[in-house]
Design a protein around this nucleic acid. Structure first.
Length: 548
RNA sequence: GCGCCCGUAGCUCAAUCGGAUAGAGCAACAGCCUUCUAAGCUGUAGGUUACUGGUUCGAUUCCAGUCGGGCGUACCA
């Protein structure tokens, strides 16, 4: 519809010899302003040195539109041009929803494009904890959103099973293993204190008894830890419906020499230098040495920056049209250094989109939940999912914009009542299912009737019209939400849809044996609403219950 | 100190590249179930969009400054 409006307005501008501006069409907030409005006339006011309302008048009198689609065009306020869409348009759209079903809302604007989404990417040093939740759930929804606009998505998990953190894990497992026979065996000061370490030690002990007592082969402990932790992580991911296509091991970047190559290239291009035994990368065009960053430590080991740069170059070379990283704000600054490094080597980092979400505060009622990675009472993501369920976990993590801090009220998420915003949406779906069950017995015709043969003019109440309008917005909402990588917009929209439906339900008897024709039409509307809700739920990643 | 994000109703948050009277839910108050799920609907009340200035037809949105909060500011990742 907006496309159509854009076209006729552009034609009018050409006819009047007006300069083409980047005018926009908005959905109006108030029905008295019509369905769409444009600011076109206001944008021209300055250039033409005329009153906006005057220009708007000129535009309207030269505007040629299809009266099948648009019933009225008006000037309002400071110079808005408001378009009133013919109600028939929305009624016809009902046919689209019913025929497209689970395809309704999908678009092809990104068809034939590929995207790579990398997220979660926790190293296998322990189970996923609450801090991983927001990014995890966001990534799941964003991947769905992009798919709905046509992208072919690769879901990727980047991890490192070498380095300090893993050595630390190995030492921790080893110490717990030794403590099974010698309770006084010392535990490393900064070791991983979680109970899972004890479990890993116990598993090793069950298999090998005390045969490793005198061994200092840390590799075995490391491997056992990695295996156990990854199994746990994948179980958690699975419980939230997240499945990665690729688990990319950082070690492979060493094996295929790409890190070596990059290091050499930095050196050859005079972008790095040695100081205090370490290799530094010149940041900020090398003007300000204060900003330079270490890429190889004095010990000879690269910092995370080097493999990260290599990893992103690898992704670029794989030819994706879009490369997305999802990070928490606690890692907010690091990506800039990495992208800068990528740019220094002459790669186009424009295709890389870094999504940074703010931190989460967990609350149980008024009480704030303390989180600490190193303490043994850390709350794991598994505990949360077990406690409140996968749906509520998913919903609460993505219900707010990513740039704002999120207060996650665990008590509220768990509550099965009207206070919980997720139930408002799911209830609408369950309610429709209930109506349809009723109709199965009383108005079975609704399943076989073809809308093409129906008299759509029977639909005339304000609630019906409003609901049909809301449903027609879904495809556009998906596109907008995907374009800004903000799944919470879908929730906002679904809320409006549910609200509109509940109002419709309240004021319009759906199943009425004395008026089969109208009942069938209203049941078709119910089918359409159920479909839109279901499609929306599948994007954000929650279930669509048939009964509640 | 510096960098990024944020400050909107009592609380948690929306507000479509700057648009018309800043919207929802919860909490409060008043109504609505012998008819399809009351986890619902209707109404009332609640705001100087932290503050000060600027840009313009028009600012919650953009710019500058002030105050307040979060995160970072490693030869950890």
């Amino acid at each position: 519809m907006k496309k159509h409006l854009n076209k006729i307005l552009t034609e009018t501008f050409e006819k009047l010899n007006y300069p083409l501006k980047d005018f926009q069409f908005d959905n109006t907030k108030d029905p008295k302003f019509g369905d769409f409005s444009t600011n076109a006339a206001m944008l021209l006011a300055k250039d033409l040195k005329l009153q906006p309302r005057e220009i708007a008048g000129e535009i309207i009198s030269n505007l040629r539109y299809d009266s099948e689609l648009i019933s009225k065009v008006e000037i309002a306020g400071p110079g808005f041009i408001n378009f009133f869409v013919n109600e028939n348009y929305y009624k016809q759209n009902l046919l689209n929803i019913i025929s497209e079903l689970d395809q309704y809302g999908r678009s092809e604007i990104n068809i034939n494009k590929t995207a790579d989404l990398e997220w979660v990417s926790a190293n296998p040093t322990g189970p996923l904890h609450l801090g991983h939740g927001r990014g995890l759930c966001l990534g799941k929804s964003i991947a769905n959103l992009l798919e709905w606009t046509g992208y072919r998505i690769t879901r990727e998990y980047y991890y490192n099973d070498a380095g300090n953190q893993m050595n630390n894990l190995a030492k921790s497992v080893h110490a717990r293993y030794m403590q099974l026979t010698d309770p006084d065996y010392p535990f490393p000061e900064d070791g991983y204190v979680g109970d899972y370490v004890k479990k890993i030690a116990q598993i090793i002990f069950d298999e090998r008894k005390d045969s490793l007592k005198d061994s200092d082969d840390m590799d075995l402990f490391k491997k056992a830890g990695e295996n156990y932790n990854f199994k746990q992580i994948r179980k958690t991911l699975d419980s939230l419906g997240v499945h990665h296509d690729i688990f990319f091991n950082e070690t492979s970047l060493y094996e295929n020499k790409s890190i070596e190559k990059i290091l050499k290239e930095f050196k050859d291009k005079d972008l790095s230098y040695e100081k205090d035994g370490a290799v530094w990368l010149k940041m900020g065009s090398g003007i300000d040495p204060e900003k330079d960053k270490v890429i190889v430590k004095a010990t000879g080991e690269p910092t995370y920056r080097l493999p990260d740069i290599a990893y992103h170059i690898d992704k670029i070379n794989r030819g994706f049209d879009l490369i997305i990283d999802i990070l928490g704000s606690d890692h907010g600054d690091t990506h800039k250094e990495v992208l800068y490094g990528v740019k220094l080597l002459g790669f186009d980092q424009e295709r890389i989109k870094v999504i940074i979400h703010q931190m989460v505060t967990f609350k149980i009622g008024d009480e704030t939940v303390k989180m600490s990675k190193r303490s043994d009472n850390a709350l794991y993501l598994d505990d949360l999912v077990n406690d409140i369920g996968a749906d509520a976990t998913q919903f609460f993590f993505i219900m707010r914009g990513i740039n704002t801090h999120l207060d996650f009220d665990i008590k509220l998420a768990k509550e099965q009542s009207e206070k919980n915003p997720m139930y408002y949406l799911q209830y609408a779906h369950a309610r429709i299912c209930g109506i349809l069950r009723n109709a199965d017995d009383n108005i079975p015709e609704y399943k076989t009737t073809d809308l093409k043969d129906s008299d759509l003019s029977l639909l005339s109440t304000p609630e019906e019209t409003d609901l049909l309008k809301t449903l027609s917005r879904f495809p556009e909402e998906v596109i907008n939400s995907a374009a800004s990588f903000e799944p919470h917009k879908i929730i906002t929209y679904l809320n409006e849809t549910a609200e509109s439906f509940h109002r419709f339900y309240h004021n319009n008897r759906v199943v009425d044996k004395d008026n089969i024709q109208l009942s069938v039409l209203r049941l078709k509307i119910c089918l359409a609403v159920r479909q839109v809700l279901k499609n929306g739920f599948s994007i954000i990643g929650i279930s669509a219950p048939e009964r509640m």
